[in-house]
């Protein structure tokens, strides 16, 4: 049986004061859950549904609609490479190909040691500093293969 820590429960209580309905706190609660449990599993969704007095089916429909909730485990470093036009014009495809080769994984996969996971994402609003990717929450911009190598080497 999973449960939020006391600290997260406090955050949730505070969060609920901002909305006239409990359901409106669903995205913030899923964020808290992902922060605490790492992955938004079916068990997590059921727990969240209980907290907000909504159906697990509703939580499932929402958690699977948005791309940023991890329904299965990601690596310690989750690499999201932009594939949309402005990045593609500036060589974004080469960055993704290079990462696949270098890490030995395809999009949507995690390296066997759990250190890296890789996926292609749509426009990150980083078009003027293309090509771009995110590693966890951080943006890395104006990339080329050498820069990517350096970034990977620095990730412990």
């Amino acid at each position: 049986m999973i449960e939020f820590s006391t600290q997260t429960k406090k955050k949730l209580e505070e969060c609920l004061t901002h909305y006239p309905t409990r359901q409106a706190a669903l995205l913030p609660t899923l964020w808290l859950a992902q922060e605490e449990f790492g992955t938004v599993t079916l068990e997590v969704m059921e727990y969240v549904a209980g907290l907000l007095d909504i159906s697990p089916a509703h939580v499932y429909s929402v958690a699977t609609f948005y791309t940023m909730f991890h329904l299965k485990p990601v690596g310690k470093y989750h690499l999201q490479v932009c594939r949309t036009l402005s990045c593609a014009l500036m060589g974004g495809e080469r960055i993704l190909d290079h990462l696949k080769k270098r890490l030995g994984i395809e999009e949507g996969e995690v390296t066997p040691n759990g250190k890296f996971s890789l996926c292609a994402v749509e426009c990150l609003a980083s078009c003027g500093t293309a090509p771009a990717m995110m590693i966890n929450e951080k943006y890395y911009e104006n990339l080329d293969v050498q820069k990517v190598e350096k970034i990977l080497d620095e990730l412990k």
Binding site: T21, A24, A25, L52, V62, F65, Y66, E122
Partner: peptide, 19 residues
């Protein structure tokens, strides 16, 4: 939480309501 469509104003409202 990652959905282009939420920039459309009524989708944004639904999203804010937890949908």
């Amino acid at each position: 939480a990652g959905a282009y469509i939420c920039g459309e104003e009524t989708a944004l409202l639904n999203s804010l309501e937890g949908k």
